[in-house]
Design a protein around this nucleic acid. Structure first.
Length: 584
RNA sequence: GGGGCGGUAGCUCAAUGGAUAGAGCAUCGGUCUUCGAAACCGAGGGUUGCGGGUUCGACCCCCGCCCGCCCCGCCA
């Protein structure tokens, strides 16, 4: 066996072959290789236990037989059979060094990782705010998690299409256009367009509520827009243009750039085939004046309809979502579509996917793998959805600004000697990164409690702690007048000896497992946990073993550890969508 | 009423059916004349909501119950 990027996978193959030679052939044998508790080793194989159970054989004897066929591993691993029949593998110090030497830069990591998702074209539908409104805290998770997932998939070899499916076509435009024509404040529009659009919408809304004549006029504006009246279409398109420009300011802070922005309006002329296709195939039926799809085999959806055309004849999001699947399957050639959307919409997606599957079966076309990547709600300290004190949604713009300001206070307190401009720049990286990391480090399915104190802290699993480790490694290289990334001072490194060196080296070698866990389950928090543990092992090493010692061989191997830790921390943080720094 | 998700240390959260359930915060106690102490080391803290079941092995799978949040026809 060679020391490839993914050692667990390589071990799995080796054990599968060895099992055949050892006679473990009945009913298939799966080695079940996984990372182990460091107390026991680096990897463990549990497959013998289940196999022995099925074959009614002694698991320890089977493990002995298997291990006797693993001589080729002896140069790399210490092997041990433990407990009822676990096989433990502990990398030898020289093998640790060899793996680290072979993966010394971003390209080597990427080359190793790229096998996992090769051949997939993944459309990721994320962020997707409504135009003419501010992005608020409710839009945070989709944007942050979606971007991290895009980066993870791309690094693992997938072709990723980032699609911002904006809500740019809704009934809100009637009232908005009504108010736009009568009450537009140009100065306010120039200053903060989304603020002005929101004001106009509220003005239109309350005017319509107070006066039925206004309501009728607003409805007329909407009808005119839908009939492609040039003036209303112009206003509408200006609103969208300005909105997207404002959104991009947020996206720039979060490091997001979409490949396509195909909002609901893009599908306006692509809805007929949906109605026709579903009606002709017999999936859709009339119910209470609407066109709906029931799923008789489903306990809930046999009575809970999927409405694809409202009783007033208008489309809704179900219609555009179906049209969107057609477009992503066709022109975008998707093999996979991921919807990074609030978990409260899970019913909708379940119905959507069920309907799409049946529809595509009738059409005879292959359906991409559709998955709803749900996420929980951001809660305040009171356990309720996060709001301002007055009960308003917190604007993303304000939230990020506050994070940056709080980080600036922290940085200025800790490192007042730095020039202000530098402290400001550091605060942007730390502040925005703290918000992103707090979101990503938690299992995405759960709700989480938003806490400035926890988020912007040097203690615990935070962005600042990780960035501090990065900054400190850079500082070592600066001190020694070396430049990281050029593998400086590594030649002549001898195998690791001290407990802290060994612990750090063994953690470094686990990077592929963390990456595979995060990408395979589309849960970035697995990578966060790994990076946090890595930074912790580095800090322990840093406190225990001095890097800048006189003995050249010891110094070389410690520099190698620093360099590789830096590489993996920086790579990992960037895969999560964070920016990095060299001082803080 | 039907359904989804959750309940793990005082608090916030981890944990592919695998070995003695782990971190951080908080509490208590240590470590700076030496590469950034924004850090590190250590201690205490648990009937994994309750009761059954499956399994060599269950926080994890199955059944029942309790509690919390969310969804259930024309918003997305």
């Amino acid at each position: 066996m060679d020391l490839s990027f993914d050692l667990a996978k390589a071990l799995d193959r080796t054990l599968t072959d060895a099992a055949r030679r050892a006679g473990l052939t009945e009913a298939g044998f799966a080695p079940e290789v996984r990372p182990a508790d460091p107390v026991h080793g680096d990897f463990q194989a549990n497959g013998v236990l289940a196999y022995a159970k099925r074959q009614r054989q002694n698991p320890r004897a089977l493990a002995e037989a298997l291990v006797s066929q693993l001589d080729e591993l002896a140069p790399l691993f210490g092997l041990a059979i433990a407990g009822p029949g676990f096989i433990n593998f502990r990398l030898k110090p020289a093998a640790l060094l060899a793996w680290l030497a072979a993966h010394s830069n971003r390209e080597a990591l990427a080359a190793g990782a790229a096998a996992a998702e090769q051949g997939h074209t993944v459309v990721v539908d994320y962020s997707s705010p409504n135009t003419a409104k501010q992005m608020h805290v409710g839009h945070l998770r989709s944007a942050v998690i979606g971007e991290a997932i895009c980066r993870l998939l791309a690094f693992s070899g997938a072709k990723v299409v980032r699609d911002n499916h904006v809500g740019d076509w809704g009934t809100q435009f009637g009232k908005l256009i009504w108010a736009y024509k009568r009450q537009l404040d140009s100065a306010a529009l120039a200053r903060d367009p989304l603020e002005e659009f929101e004001r106009l919408y509220k003005a239109g809304n309350s005017a319509a509520e107070a006066d039925p004549t206004v309501l009728k006029e607003a409805q007329q504006e909407l009808v005119k827009l839908q009939a492609r009246d040039p003036e209303n279409l112009g206003i509408w398109s200006r609103i969208n243009e300005v909105s997207l420009f404002a959104f991009q300011e947020i996206y720039d802070q979060l490091g997001i750039r979409f490949d396509v922005t195909l909002g609901e309006s893009f599908y306006n002329d692509k809805l007929e085939p949906v109605y026709r296709g579903l009606a002709d195939s017999g999936l859709a039926e009339e119910s209470q004046g609407a066109l709906v799809v029931f799923h008789p085999e489903h306990p809930r959806f046999k009575t809970q309809p999927f409405i694809i055309r409202k009783s007033d004849g208008a489309a809704n999001y179900a219609t555009t979502d179906l049209a969107t699947i057609l477009y992503r399957t066709g022109p975008l050639h998707a093999t996979d579509v991921l919807y990074v959307v609030d978990k409260r919409q899970s019913d909708h997606f379940e119905q959507l996917f069920l309907t799409a599957r049946k529809w595509f079966e009738k059409m005879g076309g292959p359906l991409p793998r559709l998955r709803h990547l749900d996420f929980g709600t951001v809660l305040g300290e009171n356990g309720k959805p996060l709001k301002t004190r007055s009960g308003e949604n917190i604007r993303l713009k304000d939230l990020l600004a506050e994070a940056v300001e709080r980080s600036y206070q922290l940085v200025s307190g800790k490192n007042p000697g730095l020039p202000e401009a530098e402290r400001r720049a550091i605060a942007r990286t730390v502040g925005v990164g703290s918000v992103q990391y707090a979101d990503l480090s938690q299992n995405r399915s759960s709700d989480y409690v938003f806490s400035w104190h926890k988020m912007i802290s040097l203690e615990g699993n935070t962005a600042a702690y990780l960035l501090y480790a990065v900054a400190r490694i850079h500082s070592i290289f600066r001190k020694l007048d070396l430049r990281p990334g050029e593998a400086p001072g590594e030649t002549g490194a001898t195998a690791f000896e001290t407990p802290a060196e060994l612990a750090l080296a063994r953690k470094l070698v686990r990077f592929p497992d963390a990456l595979a866990a995060a990408t395979g389950t589309l849960r970035p928090h697995f990578l966060c946990t790994y990076l946090y543990e890595l930074a912790g092992d580095f800090s322990t090493f840093y406190n225990a073993d001095k890097v800048a010692v006189d003995e050249p061989a010891v110094r070389a191997r410690r520099l190698l550890l620093c360099n590789r830790t830096l590489l993996l921390l920086e790579t990992g943080l960037q895969l999560l969508g964070l920016r990095i720094l060299t001082k803080m």
